[in-house]
Each structure stands twice: as structure tokens, then as C-alpha cells.
Amino acid sequence: MSHIRKEGTIIQLSSRQLELIELVKKHSPVTGDQLAEYLGVSRPTLRSDLSLLVMLGMLDAKPKVGYFLGNTFRESHEPLQRFSRMKVKEVQGVPVNIPDTLSVHDAVITLFMENANTLIVVNEEKRFAGIITPKDLLKITLGNSGAATIPVSMVMTRYPNVVTLTPDESVMEAISKLSQHQVDCLPVIVPDEEPSRNPIISGWVSKSNIVSLMADIATA
């Protein structure tokens, strides 16, 4: 989130509100219906976000024309502009990797020991094979006494059925994917020149990465 000071009060902007600002910046003037279509949500879902941004002066609106950037953004919102230029490779973190032969039992231990919300699974070549989440582990272990010995390769979400990022994608695109797919983190991959080989895992971007980044920018 980003923090905006308004008449002595600090107001936090959500990732969706930041994304709305970027969409308006790119497409203005743009209607509320068009913004809803870009984000894949209904128009009523955005009503409160748009009202807040107009109230803050981040956006302006004209009837039958649409939304465009407001004076507050144009005059004094360099932190957001700087944020919008950032690439994934500048903010990605170090993922928690586990081999695809690891047992479900050991994966659960790793999850808690590393305080992670997702585990990245790699194959024998140390290349990206898939992901494991707490929900995946819960599904397989509930009511299944023999689940602990099952290898994670049997229960992981396999690549390419995983939403991913590449290092040169923008941070705003990362926010969009995190929001759209309702996930806690996204693996960052470097595709191999040989299509038959799995990609190299470069890092990951999590919601906590984004929140920390925005906090750093807002207080810089």
C-alpha cells in the first residue's frame, strides 16, 4: 500500500487503487465501465475506490467523458510515478525451494520453519517444476493417514499451470496478477531457450514484498 497525507490524516491506498491510477494514467480519459473491464471486475466493485481517489484529488472525473489524473497526482505524486517504473527484477525476493522428491511431511515442516505461504518445487535439474501452498498440503493430509510419505510432486500445482512473472515485467503487472488470481506470491522465471526444458527460477514476488516496497517509497 501507499500512504497519502490528506489534511493531517494518513490514508492508505490499496493495490487496486494504485492500479486504477496507472490505468487512468495510461488510457485517460477512460470510463468507469472500461476500468472495470480492464480489471475484470464489475463497475459497482470499483465505485468506492474511484470515489476515494477523486476525493483525494488523485483522479478527476467529467460526466460523459471519464476519469483522468487529478491535480494531486500531477503535482506531487512522484513516489507513485517512481513505483510504476520499477521492474520485477528490482523487487523480487529469494524463494523457498524444495525438491520434487520431498515428502509432504517434510514440506509441512519446511513451510512452518521458513514462515512461508508458498513453496517453490524444483526438479533434479534445479529448474522450476511447480508450487505447493498450505491449502494443497491441507487437502492431501486431511483424513489420509498415509499422506505424509507422498512426494510433493504428486500434489503440487505443476508448471505451466502456475501464474508466473518474468524479471522484466513491471511491478504494476505483478500487482495486477496477484490481485486478479487471488494468490499470495508469484514465481519469477527465466524461460529456457529450449522449450522442452523447464524454466530457471529467478525469485518470487509476494504481497509482503509489495507492501514493504510501498512503505519504503512512501517514507523516502
Rank of each mutant, 00 (worst) to 15 (best):
K139Y: 15
V121S: 13
T166C: 13
K62W: 14
I11Y: 08
T72F: 12
L102Q: 08
I201Y: 00
I200F: 13
R127F: 07
S51Y: 01
K25A: 09
L111W: 08
Q81L: 13
G70E: 12
T166V: 14
A174C: 08
T45S: 13
L138M: 14
L142I: 15
S153C: 02
I10H: 02
V171H: 04
D106T: 06
L69M: 14
D192M: 07
E37P: 03
A148Y: 09
S202Y: 05
V96S: 02
Y38Q: 07
Q81A: 09
M172N: 03
F112R: 05
V183I: 14
M154W: 01
N97H: 05
V30D: 06
I200E: 11
V122C: 11
M58V: 00
A148D: 12
K135S: 13
E173C: 08
L142E: 12
R47I: 03
V163S: 11
Q180D: 10
P95I: 14
H181N: 15
I189H: 11
A218W: 10
H105F: 14
S196W: 01
V155Y: 04
S2I: 11
K62C: 01
D216I: 14
A148K: 15
N144A: 06
L138S: 10
I200L: 12
E169T: 12
L119R: 00
E114C: 09
A36D: 11
P99R: 11
I109T: 09
D100N: 12
K177T: 09
M86Q: 06
V108T: 06
Q182S: 13
G8N: 04
E90P: 00
D49Q: 03
L23P: 03
L80R: 02
A220I: 00
A36G: 09
E22S: 14
L20N: 06
V96K: 14
F68K: 13
D60F: 06
C185V: 04
K26F: 05
V88D: 05
N115E: 15
L213M: 07
A174G: 08
S208N: 07
K135F: 05
P63W: 07
L142Y: 11
Q180Y: 15
V163Q: 08
E19A: 02
I189W: 10
N97I: 15
V188F: 00
R158N: 06
S84Q: 10
L137R: 03
P195S: 06
E173S: 01
Q17W: 04
E124H: 04
Q17S: 02
V94Q: 01
P160C: 08
V121D: 10
S206I: 13
F73N: 04
A147W: 08
S179P: 03
G32N: 05
I210R: 02
E37Y: 03
A61Y: 15
L80K: 07
L23K: 05
Q180T: 15
P99I: 04
M156L: 15
R43T: 12
N198T: 08
P79F: 09
V162W: 07
S212D: 14
